[in-house]
Design a protein around this nucleic acid. Structure first.
Lengths: 218, 218
DNA sequence: CAATACAGAACGAGCGCTCGGTTTGTTTAT
DNA sequence: ATAAACAAACCGAGCGCTCGTTCTGTATTG
């Protein structure tokens, strides 16, 4: 017969609360989700809920913390791609990794937008503010070396990595979390490969060493 | 003495409601904004509020309708840039137009995300689904002509326009609505010009007619 | 005198959270 | 081994309050 220890029981309950809250928050927002909803969905009582969490916002906070931990986890496929620093050869792999991450965390990603809307981004700001520095840390040295070796043009590859990563996140978030499929008027496959092509080779055909066409305005 | 006509009175009241609701919704979300909040902020009574609008959601809907009308208005600076179809010479102008539109409509733009979070995007889906077709309509003929004239490489310029437009919207939305300044680790000016450069010329230096480096994976 | 614009009390439901109490599992004393 | 003592886990009724909406009635206007 299985003997369940006390702290195991607690752990399971907390997981049930978080799972229920994630589903409810991501489907109806923070304000529209009541503690009774969470209690019902998780199978816990109101009292027990407040035994494990001081208030509703703490549950929300805990969920966001989880997501950021997942993102930064070295085992995350996105982190693996990034740490190989084989940009821009790995753009296709980067796209696929981010598609997977967004798919797998679509509920968590919606929490980000809930925070923006209902809390003015209070719970996520520090994470996003530190993002560029984290990129630099993981990526900076290798790419800088390759740049001075002349692998890239006069573009900063670190900037390009950030842009590509953010673009993929944005694109797949709209596709998978906002439920607006084909919002570019093309399939995700097409959109991704077109973006990659633009990023690699640009829009204008640069035949020979022609000067770039002068911009009409700056 | 100013004689105010009856329907003018009504019109003013409705404007007051919409202004109040826009501010409140965009600052605290739909669910967290009460009809009493809106009544107080607009200076109307509860009864009068319900005299002009059948329910809370109708106010929200009306605000979104307004925003989409503004966006499609031919006088909108963004529309003017788009209709000139001077892509990609006008990328800087496009960026500035979108920066202005986002700045001027930041409260409305937040409503979009509120709709995604609290209504699963029910009020905005049709607008975004039709967006690619509208681009095609406004832009398609001219760009297609210029493409067959050989102005572009093998990239579809329509795709590039959509990507550029969406990217600028995304970038300035995060900057101005989500209150995450410098989220790419650089100033908006830098980010914009870097993105434009990438879009025009790409990341890789294509010297002469060299073959493009083989991608590691597809 | 209509019809429209406006006011605010009232309604039932639901909110976040508290509180007193029970159950369950572990530790300690005998 | 057993009982007593303790703390963590759990329960749900209840508190004060606010919610979206409705209702009844009064000003204002043409």
């Amino acid at each position: 017969m299985v003997q369940r220890r006390k702290q195991d029981r607690s752990k399971v309950s907390i997981e049930q609360v978080l799972a229920a809250a994630l589903e409810l928050f991501s489907n109806q927002g923070f304000g529209a989700t009541s503690m009774r909803n969470i209690a019902d969905q998780s199978g816990l009582s109101m009292g027990n809920l407040y035994h494990h969490f001081p208030n509703k916002e703490a549950i929300f906070q805990k969920l966001l913390d989880r997501y950021f931990e997942r993102l930064e986890d070295p085992d995350n496929p996105l982190q693996k791609v990034l740490r190989k620093a084989d940009f821009p050869n790995d753009l296709e792999a980067l796209a696929r990794a981010i598609e997977g991450v967004v798919e797998e965390n679509s509920a968590y990603i919606l929490l980000i937008y809930i925070d923006v809307v209902e809390f003015k981004g209070a719970h996520i700001r520090s994470f996003y503010e530190g993002m560029a520095a984290r990129f630099e840390e993981v990526y900076g040295a290798q790419l800088e070396a390759r740049k001075t070796a002349g692998e890239f043009g006069d573009v900063d590859p670190l900037v390009a990595v950030i842009m590509a990563t953010r673009w993929f996140f944005y694109f797949f978030t709209v596709e998978k979390c906002f439920h607006v499929p084909m919002h570019f008027g093309m399939s995700p496959k097409e959109a991704t490969s077109e973006f990659i092509r633009l990023l690699r080779y640009g829009l204008l055909p640069r035949l020979g060493s022609d000067a770039a066409p002068k911009p009409l305005d700056t």
